[in-house]
Amino acid sequence: MAYFRVLSAQLAQLQALLVREESWAILITADPDALASAMALQRIIRSKVKSVTIARTNEITRPDNLAMIRYLNIPVVKWRPSMKKKIQRFALVDSQAHHNPAFAGLEFSVVIDHHPKTDDPCSAPFQDIRPDYGSVSTMMTEYLYSAGIRPARLLATALQYGIRTDTATFGRGCTDVDLRAYHYLSRFGDATLMNRILRSEYMPEWLPYFSRAFETLRPCGRGSYVWLGKVDSSDILVVVADFFLKVHGLRWVAVCGVSAGRVIVVFRGGYGKMDLGAVASCVFPGIGGGGGHKTMARAEAALVDVPVEARSGLEEYVFQLIYTAAEKRRRQQAASHGEKKAAPEESGTEEARRRTAKAAGEKKSAQTKGAAEDAVPLPEAPAEPLESDVQA
């Protein structure tokens, strides 16, 4: 079996689009996988065209992403519509045209992605979309390998980090080819730089948000709900949600808040059957949108589109929407597996309190009786940090 895919035909198709007199822009919603993938594509095409610019459509505020750009010298600039007149060709990596309003009106020549395909795909002449891959960084490693390009130290480290973050250090959506790509890149990457990036997880000013998260954490059906209120950036929601992935016993968590006039929900799941992407798509019916993978997803809506009467109790309003969407999805999954249809549960805060009180009573009773089945908590095993995408 070949170490990687043989991409001779794809590379020939890509090379056919390259014209010496043309300038290219690689657009990304900046996160580690997108940044690394854009670096790799730039390396492949830069000698065949006039210039290649990596342009981000989002603000970068997460410390790990800022550290990645700084330590790996990634030449990324902020995308401005005025740049369009100087660019002849556009490429898109780790995303698709419908993922971001900033991509509207642009005609892409290249789209390389690993997210699920849409029913309304773009008309790019070169497209490579592989939802079965854990990261686009893995795909770009294959392209470099097939092109006979040995990745330099900084590029190899970037691709390694891109693979780590999008597979949650090989714990989410990871395949054999992701592992092979990471192993191959380890020959050329810089472990010291990787560790410096991995240790750049939190900003000091974010710590109060964690305190608020612990105070507002409560059950939401079979998952958990956190309300952070107004936040400076939606990246904070992502960081807090990723933190809760490390908490034993949480099936999934929805971390919610308001940023830049939008109500945003970031979903993360460590285990269980719940498809969080499907839940996210149903949270804001008629006023917003959402989607994502089974274990990580996002939903959002403009605050002005939230019913006026709900704005004074926004925390509870969003809780009810998430609870309803999650329970609906749970029953759909149960029905699709031929399981007995679950009886309707009480909804909202009272249901959460009832479940919590019942669990506490059962635990106290079991402790009093000295029941043998009461499990002794195991010591936590040291875990490497989990990084995720910055979401636009």
Rank of each mutant, 00 (worst) to 15 (best):
G162E: 01
L18R: 04
V308K: 01
S224M: 04
P344G: 06
F108C: 15
G269Y: 03
A325G: 03
M296K: 01
A191L: 07
I287E: 11
L106K: 14
P377F: 04
G292H: 06
A371T: 03
G338F: 05
M274A: 11
V239F: 02
V258M: 11
S8V: 04
D235M: 02
I74H: 04
A97V: 15
Q160T: 05
Y202M: 07
H337L: 06
S281N: 05
T165C: 13
A124S: 13
S135Y: 05
P121L: 13
D128P: 06
P121H: 11
P344R: 04
A392G: 15
V49G: 13
Y184E: 12
S211G: 11
L228Y: 01
Q13G: 15
I87L: 11
V255F: 02
L314Q: 03
Y182R: 01
G269N: 05
K363V: 01
A359G: 08
S123Y: 12
D235C: 04
A181P: 07
Q333I: 02
D190F: 04
A67W: 01
F170W: 09
N100Y: 14
A104C: 15
A55C: 14
F108A: 14
A97Y: 13
Y271E: 15
M39L: 15
R199I: 05
H293Q: 02
T29W: 11
P208M: 04
D374T: 07
A2H: 12
W24N: 15
A297W: 03
